[in-house]
Design a protein around this nucleic acid. Structure first.
Lengths: 226, 226
DNA sequence: CTCAGTTCAGGTCACCAAGACCTTTACTGA
DNA sequence: TCAGTAAAGGTCTTGGTGACCTGAACTGAG
């Protein structure tokens, strides 16, 4: 056990709104490494685990420090521990994945050392981080189909079209509005109000149904923060 | 990061064959702790991660050393890292779960310090190991329904009844033989031979269909050893 | 040799969820 | 007032599932 360093990293997903006739898509923030190894390359935000915080706390803290983001959903992804994944010594990384709302994402100061990238078109990253993002994306897409994590991308109230566009952005394919409604409406509560202003029939606003679990993580349940 | 110890533990599942009119059930081997903390209590087999082996290798090695078992399936379960989970200091445990065949399980020398327990009726265990086993059981049962891990409990050739009994043991409920056949038969290859000797129509023997993936772990894929 | 007992193998039927597609509703802006 | 647009709500078909039934194939008792 001697000589093994323990790190946490987080794959942070946010939606970049549709850019004029486009569809929205999934983006992630990366930080530029300013030291060896992989000096100059982009990498997942992360850092070392301190002795007095849980793994999830360490992930949240690092995320706040490096990108100023607070996630609306946070879940452990996987522990990566191959012997040769870091040229500078043995590092085991506990990786988390997080979802942030669009308004939250705007707070992430872009700059010299923090930049957003489209999740499925990344440059070469430091360490094994390309593979990690690929796996995180797979988890996000898989989980979207059997749980309700899409809500973590949205605010407290939203229309069915908002929610459908989140699904379409993550899954990268159009969904039938009528069928989508049938599937998700039973898990939501209408607020009673509608959104007027569009050149069409005004959509209803919905809210979470808190009596239905957001995701089913089995006995682990309560780690997330939705 | 100073002062954090990194351990691996494994939840090992095996089936105990039906005992006279009973149904088979899931059992796990535990080791008795012979030092503080929790001296005398039962715990999951595990140990420290050395600097020159991957996490999965460390799990396999510890499993072989403490219980003489070699799993037919091995997958990472979760990284447990709460601050107070060990009274003797900060320990982060990467936990794996494994499946072993019945013939393999017989090799696990029961003795003063290794004993098998029924998975859903355990005594109080050391550390947070009760919660860990509960989560591992949930994963096993969940995964059984959407993948083909049940095959890891069986040998190379088996009847549909063998396979169905594995499912019934894990899920703790009887399954309709006809419906079960319809669901799994397309994923198997008949060997052409039958088993005679029973007081009934002789069942066919089947084999894996290697052209179909055992489980879908996405881009992580190849970590297991089925 | 025959038959009762047992499980395997293969089918039917009703039901439900999902996808494709259509109609009506309700609003805005020209 | 009307054209355009998306919401809301429906129908129809299909595929998968659970419940259940029938015949096939074997063994062992009488």
């Amino acid at each position: 056990m001697a000589g093994i360093d323990l790190a946490v990293s987080t794959v942070i997903f946010a939606l970049r709104p549709a850019a004029e006739g486009e569809v929205a898509s999934v983006w992630i923030p990366l930080v530029r490494r300013i030291a060896e190894p992989f000096d100059g390359l982009w990498a997942l935000p992360g850092g070392w685990v301190t002795g007095d915080e849980s793994l999830a706390d360490a992930a949240s803290r690092n995320l706040l420090e490096t990108t100023a983001l607070e996630p609306s959903y946070l879940e452990q992804l996987y522990a990566f521990g191959d012997v040769d994944r870091s040229p500078s010594g043995r590092v085991v990384s506990i990786v988390y994945w997080a979802l942030v709302r669009a308004d939250e994402a705007a707070r992430a100061a872009e700059g010299e050392n923090v930049r957003w990238f489209p999740a499925d078109d990344l440059p070469r990253l430091a360490f094994d981080h390309n593979a990690i993002v690929e796996y995180a994306l797979w988890r996000l897409r898989t989980k979207l189909e059997y749980s309700r994590i899409a809500l973590a991308f949205l605010g407290a109230e939203f229309t069915l079209t908002d929610l459908r566009e989140v699904h379409e952005a993550v899954l990268r394919k159009p969904l039938d509005p009528a069928n989508f409604r049938r599937q998700v409406e039973p898990t939501l509560v209408p607020t009673g109000t509608v959104v007027s202003g569009g050149r069409h029939r005004p959509p209803r606003l919905y809210r979470y149904n808190h009596s239905i679990e957001l995701v089913d993580n089995g006995p682990l349940g309560k780690e997330n923060t939705p």
